[in-house]
């Protein structure tokens, strides 16, 4: 019999592994729904990671750390927005340079913090509920960002399908020319989306340095920005599928470690590749519905918008 302690431990690590992906991906989903492809996710995440770590360290408050992480991500998205939205620059090239810039800048800013012990985001503790076996710590003993990630998924889903502003955002992503003809300010909508995406990516990065491993190391995002980007596409731009994808990826990653730890003889390369394979296969299977795909894929994704005046 597997004892309950191990199951709890696995569930807890899955949540910690999945949350940064989910936070970054839900922001990128909103950005892409508005027709902008921001490949700078990795750069904005690392900015959030160092920003959050440094702020928490200097002020002694993890709450300020989380706030600064979001702001750092959003600030880094500003040059991207200026280039891509106002100057209609190529989105792919601009996004890639944003990633490179973010990684470099974070390494420079983070130099003094190397090896400094960090602060860890406190976990919620509700006496009685948190003490329950397995579900107690898993459901009621998480830190605030975990809950926030699910609030964001639900809110984004509601926003996109039920609110007028969400409809406008989808309209801008579907055809910026038609939106412009109707008098919708395409640039304004895209700016809001890009800033929101930057803040979410910053939070995802902040989670890494404040909860996942409360330490600052260079390149600590380790490609998670790219995974989040892929999750958005494979989840056909639907918020709840992003959540499924993020957790699937987190779960398979963690289970791989445990499998190795338990002495099951599988080549380690296969273990490393498994999360990618499993996530892609599952998300491809659930996105077979062509109509759904056609309706949710932003038709103007990556296209620069130049209004005729």
């Amino acid at each position: 019999m597997v004892d309950a302690g191990i199951i709890t431990a696995i569930a807890l690590t899955v949540i910690t592994a999945s949350t940064p992906l989910l936070l970054a991906a839900i922001g990128e989903l909103v950005v892409e729904r508005s027709g902008v492809l921001n490949l700078g996710l990795e750069g904005m995440m690392i900015a959030g990671a160092i920003g959050g770590f440094a702020a928490a360290n200097l002020t002694g408050s993890t709450a300020i750390g989380v706030g600064v992480a979001a702001v750092a991500g959003a600030v880094l998205s500003i040059p991207f927005g200026i280039l891509v939205i106002n100057l209609a620059a190529n989105q792919v090239a601009t996004g890639l340079s944003l990633t490179l810039f973010g990684l470099g800048a974070a390494a420079m800013v983070g130099e003094p913090f190397l090896g400094t012990p960090g602060l860890k985001l406190p976990k919620l503790d509700i006496p009685g509920l948190t003490d329950l076996q397995v579900i107690g710590p898993v459901l009621f003993g998480q830190d605030g960002l975990v809950y926030l990630s699910f609030v964001l998924v639900a809110a984004t889903s509601w926003f996109l399908t039920r609110s007028r502003a969400g409809l406008t955002l989808r309209a801008v992503g579907d055809s910026h020319d038609s939106a412009h003809n109707l008098g919708i300010s395409v640039r304004k909508v895209r700016w809001m989306a890009v800033l929101f995406g930057g803040a979410c990516a910053g939070l995802g990065g902040g989670y890494l340095s404040l909860a996942y491993t409360p330490l600052w190391t260079e390149n600590m995002t380790a490609g998670r920005g790219w995974i989040a980007l892929a999750l958005v596409v494979f989840s056909s731009w639907l918020p709840w599928r992003v959540a499924i994808g993020a957790y699937l990826f987190g779960a398979v990653t963690i289970l791989g470690f445990h499998a190795q730890g338990a002495g099951i003889r599988i080549p380690s390369q296969f273990i490393s590749a498994l999360p990618y394979l499993a996530t892609i296969v599952v998300l491809v299977i659930i996105s077979r519905n062509k109509t759904l795909l056609r309706v949710n894929t932003p038709a103007c994704l990556g296209k620069p918008f130049v209004p005729a005046r």
Partner: peptide, 27 residues
């Protein structure tokens, strides 16, 4: 912008349609 023209009461039916393919008729 067109929203201002509309608020004055000018409406337009476009030749090259200004519709959103991914949205429903009501949207």
């Amino acid at each position: 912008n067109p929203a201002e023209a509309r608020s004055h009461g000018i409406g337009m039916v476009f030749q090259h349609f200004s519709l959103f393919e991914a949205l429903s008729v009501a949207e």
